[in-house]
Design a protein around this nucleic acid. Structure first.
Length: 487
RNA sequence: GGCGGGUUGGCGGAGAGGUUACGCAGCGGAUUGCAAAUCCGUGAAGACCGGUUCGAUUCCGGUACCCGCCUCCA
């Protein structure tokens, strides 16, 4: 069996992964707060842990891996958006407006992450559906002396858990010295964090032993992972930004509620995304969503490739240039594997690369080696380990139209040309160009051929001509309307 | 202030204490109406200063610079 090694943030070492139960390998990844479209940074953990999910399924069997990723649908930003809509005169209740907002955001999230080729997790619990489990856990923490009620709030007593700060390498005293902690009069200690807080009448709330209120942010992951994966499970993932305080607080809650268990054995964190060398942020004006890129015509597969070309533990820089290179590579590979049956199993070199702490960059290098050897079947089977070259995200963006010299008949590479989106104009152009070229080759006057080529290039189409015939390759910026001039 | 990540050839980006990463771009050649694509070949690196070692880009220490988290934004 393949030996998987993973870097564990908890121990800061790369260790052999040994599941608690090989028949049910369990992974929890922190999911999005569903108040708006997922931005590009949100996509990184999704893609990283999707590859891990695929690897685990390959090694332990597709039915022996449970992957849970939550939706946080209790949040001030969601409330704010619902209140905004109510303020605009929407007659429905706040609860209805919140539900509508989270429903539509979850739908968008699924659409966008599907487009990136991410498999749906086994379960996607919503916080609002597990409030009871959270209340029970909070009650338990109070009973065990790890939490206290004060002024309608329930707070976690950080000093009661001696392991606090271990994951992120911080000490409570140092953090207080740093003075970046919220001071509140009802806290015994400035580091204590909220498990439950009261809701006013104009905010959503649930009845609890401490009055009508809502849960703090961290408790949902502790409660839901426990309900769905048990006291101890194998892997907990998320972005490095969540390491503190979110994951530290999760550990404190779960370890104190279930002191006999391990909670998560392996902690994995992906590094952050940058855009053209800078942090992506609204204030810098370089903030964009996954949907923005898809709408610009960048295929989800290309976005995925760019993400996987950098190891998850390093900051990843999104650049136009990388997207361009990824597109060129995938276009070549798509052409190579079109119509080819995948090999029965992925290349060992690719599996080995992924098993070595998810070395996706090396895995891609191995894919280049397979492509270089012309092993299309092996390339296809291996790329699927990375979620690349799979049918689910094949929108046909890479297809081209070929007119073989002599026949004058247009054919689509791998598929009938009619399948290619917006290509009836392109097919006509291919025939026109082919005919013009035939004439030009006899007359030696290529002016019309060159004019057509310029027009095609202007419309975002790459033109290749050889003795065998011509090939038209619409780029992601292909604009069929600009081909009208050729008629 | 505390904590963490990074610095590799023109660009992107890996592994390994001593042997070619890989991709893109470049250069030479084949091919071509031209241009691509394709094929063959090829040059190019390890922020800086010390240390360990027969030997370090790879290990250790320090310096510089970049980035992030600790604060709504992952």
């Amino acid at each position: 069996m393949t030996t998987i090694r993973l870097t564990n943030t908890k121990t800061r070492t790369k260790d052999v992964f040994e599941p608690i139960d090989p028949d049910n390998v369990r992974m929890y990844v922190c999911g999005p707060t569903v108040y708006d479209r997922a931005h590009l940074g949100n996509a990184r953990p999704v893609i990283v842990f999707d590859v891990l999910f695929r690897l685990l399924r390959h090694v332990y069997g597709a039915d022996h891996v449970t992957y849970v990723r939550n939706f946080t649908d209790v949040d001030d930003k969601i409330n704010a958006e619902a209140q905004r809509r109510k303020g605009l005169g929407d007659p429905r209740s706040l609860e209805e407006l919140i539900r509508e907002r989270t429903e539509e955001t979850i739908r968008w999230y699924h659409e966008d992450m599907d487009a990136l080729g991410a498999l749906r997790p086994t379960q996607e619990p919503r916080a609002t559906e597990w409030i009871g489990a959270m209340i029970a856990m909070i009650g338990d923490l109070i009973a065990r002396g790890h939490a206290y009620e004060k002024a309608g709030h329930v707070l976690f007593r950080v000093r009661s858990y001696q392991g606090y700060g271990k994951l992120s390498g911080r000490s409570v005293d140092d953090m207080i010295a740093g003075a970046r902690v919220e001071v509140a009069p009802f806290k015994e200690d400035p580091m204590d964090f909220v498990l439950w807080k009261p809701s006013t009448d104009d905010l959503p709330g649930w009845d609890s032993p401490w009055g009508r209120g809502r849960p703090g942010w961290h408790i949902e992951c502790s409660a839901m992972s426990h309900e769905l994966l048990g006291d101890s499970f194998d892997i907990h993932g998320g972005g490095i930004d969540l390491q503190f305080p979110h994951h530290e607080n999760e550990i404190a809650q779960s370890m104190c509620a279930h002191p006999e268990a391990d909670f998560a054995r392996v902690w994995m964190h992906n590094e952050m995304l940058q855009v053209e060398g800078k942090k992506m942020s609204k204030s810098l004006g370089n903030f964009f969503t996954v949907r923005d890129l898809l709408d610009k015509g960048i295929p989800g597969e290309v976005i995925r490739f760019v993400f996987l070309s950098t190891h998850y533990s390093k900051p990843m820089d999104w650049t136009e240039e990388k997207a361009r290179q990824a597109e060129a590579t995938l276009r070549k590979w798509r052409g190579l594997v079109a119509g080819v049956e995948p090999a029965p199993s992925p290349a060992p070199s690719v599996v080995t690369a992924l098993a070595d702490d998810l070395n996706t960059a090396r895995a891609i290098a191995e894919l280049h080696a397979l492509a270089g050897k012309g092993d299309a079947a092996g390339l296809k089977a291996s790329a699927e380990m990375l979620g690349l070259l799979v049918a689910e995200i094949d929108t046909g963006w890479w297809r081209s139209i070929t007119v073989a010299a002599g026949t004058g008949r247009a054919t689509g590479q791998g598929h009938a040309p009619s399948v290619v989106v917006g290509t009836s104009a392109l097919e006509d152009a291919a025939k026109v160009l082919s005919e013009a070229r035939k004439v030009a080759l006899a007359s030696k006057d290529f002016s019309r051929v060159d004019a057509i080529r310029r027009a095609l290039s202007n419309a975002g189409v790459e033109v290749r001509m050889s003795k065998a015939g011509i090939e038209l390759i619409p780029g992601t910026n292909f604009d069929p309307a600009k081909l009208e001039a050729l008629k």
